[in-house]
Design a protein around this nucleic acid. Structure first.
Lengths: 131, 131
DNA sequence: ACACATATATGTAAATATCATATATTAGTT
DNA sequence: AACTAATATATGATATTTACATATATGTGT
């Protein structure tokens, strides 16, 4: 048995990092936030924490944004203002909106798989209605 | 723009592999199947394809099973029968059931995050009821 | 003898996530 | 003036996870 992780929500311990994370989930979250208004990387942090359920790694965020720009999902321009450090402002593109739409559709399938697991679990482990 | 992937369900294209996959989702699926009855690796393939929504890499499956045994979630014994190749039969352990329970609880949070994204998406892109 | 399905397993590379660190600017404090 | 902290962007190094290919062995049918 190699248990190295202690779960904060239910107190149980298990191997490595938290379970249930969706690969690159931060990307549609970024695109949704940028759909509302352009923003700079640091300014996205708070909204992303809400959407992702935990603090987002800042370094990862910046690297992701550059990658998304390389892939054509966002554009960026430098914003220069008095009494403020230069910020790189990101704007969503049409390709970005297309991917967001796809991601949402794809996550519906993911959602179905999760609920399929839930129903299977309930059948095998009934023990009361609440879980 | 670097689009290298063509989505089979909606026809759109985007970078790298399919979106929406949950890290190590195969593990609770394996544990759920083994909760019903012991099984060998190859015999799990069909059930896992249903639960995971696509074919599971066979090599990955075997490696995952050995890792889960190392972590104490399953046990294995060799089954020897006439007219049949030796099979390694896996059985779920108490630790395995504990992790499955945790995984289900954790996936409920994942589910909430997905639906939070959905509701945010609907607000920004209303366009009709159905999506 | 051959092809094919079953069955288990490993090698290698790519993609992704994590943790640490570097750099620069602004605002407030001692 | 020196310091501390928050803001802001970015990279280096490592670990984890996934994907794809390959190796090996057995049983079944032709």
């Amino acid at each position: 048995m190699i248990f190295t992780y202690m779960c904060q929500s239910c107190g149980c311990s298990f191997r490595s990092r938290d379970f249930g994370t969706i690969e690159r989930f931060v990307e549609p979250c970024i695109l949704l936030l940028l759909s509302k208004e352009p923003a700079h990387g640091y300014g996205l942090l708070e909204g992303l924490e809400t959407h992702c359920g935990e603090k987002v790694d800042v370094g990862d965020l910046y690297r992701t944004l550059r990658r998304m720009e390389r892939d054509g999902w966002v554009n960026s321009t430098w914003e220069r203002k008095e009494n403020q450090r230069d910020r790189r402002i990101y704007t969503i593109t049409e390709e970005g909106r297309a991917f967001l739409k796809h991601a949402v559709a794809s996550l519906r399938q993911t959602d179905e798989l999760i609920h399929h697991l839930f129903s299977g679990y309930r059948k095998v482990y009934p023990e009361g209605k609440a879980l």
